[in-house]
Amino acid sequence: CFEPRQPRLKKCAGDIPRLANETIFTMNEVEALYELFKKLSSSIIDDGMIHKEELQLALFQTPSGENLFVDRIFDLFDEKKNDVIEFDEFVHALSVFHPNAPMEDKIDFAFRLYDLRQTGFIEREEVKQMVIAILMESDMTLSDDLLEAIIDKTFADADADKDGRINSEEWKDFVLRNPNLLKNMTLPYLKDLTTLFPSFVFNTKVED
C-alpha cells in the first residue's frame, strides 16, 4: 500500500480507486502521481514519506534554510499533522491544483495558506510577515513606509468591513476581482501526468 516505511511494496489496488474517487484524478493519473511521489519522498530519506526538507529541496534546490511559504504548503498538505506528507495527502492536496479543480477549492486553499495563525482571518500582521518574507527571499528591500503603504492599499481593496482583517467572504470577493492571485494555485502539469510519468505503466494495477 502507500503505507510509510513500506515504499517498495506494491500499491494496494484498492487505494487507487479510492484516491481517484476522492480527487479529480483518474486511476492511472493517481499511479503516475505515485511515480513523482516516489522520487520526492526518496530524495533525502528513502522512507516513502515526504519530509519538509525534501519539499524544500524540490522547491529551492537546497534542503537547508527556512521559508515561511514552504512551511505553510507543508502544513496544508500534512492533513494528519504528523510532520510528513503521505501519498494520500499528496494526492488530495495536488487535486486542488488541477486546472479543472473547482475555483472555490483554490480560493479556500489560498485563504488557509495565508491565514498563518489559522484564526479564520487573514490579519494585517500576517500579511506584513509574508511581505517581509518574500522581500527576504528575493533579496529586495523596501522602506517601512512603502511596506505599510502596500499593505494599506491591499486592505483598502480587500477588507470590506474595515475591521483590519480579511475574512473568507472578503477574500473570495477580492480574488474574484484579482484572479491573477490564484495563478499559482493551478499546475498545468497535472493535466499531463501519464505523459510526464510514463513509467507508471510498468506498475499499473488498474485500467482507466
Binding site: 522547491l59 529551492f60 511559504f69 514552504v70 491544483f97 495565508y114 518574500i134 502596500i150 491591499t154 499559482n184
Partner: peptide, 26 residues
C-alpha cells in the same frame, strides 16, 4: 510601476516556495 500600486498578495504569490510547478521540473 510604483510598488504602492502593487497588491501585497501579488507580491507574496511570487514566492518560489509557492511555485509547486518546480516539483515537476528536474
Amino acid at each position: 510601476v510604483s510598488p504602492v500600486t502593487m497588491n501585497a498578495f501579488e507580491l507574496i504569490s511570487t514566492s518560489q516556495g509557492l511555485n509547486l510547478s518546480s516539483l515537476f521540473e528536474k
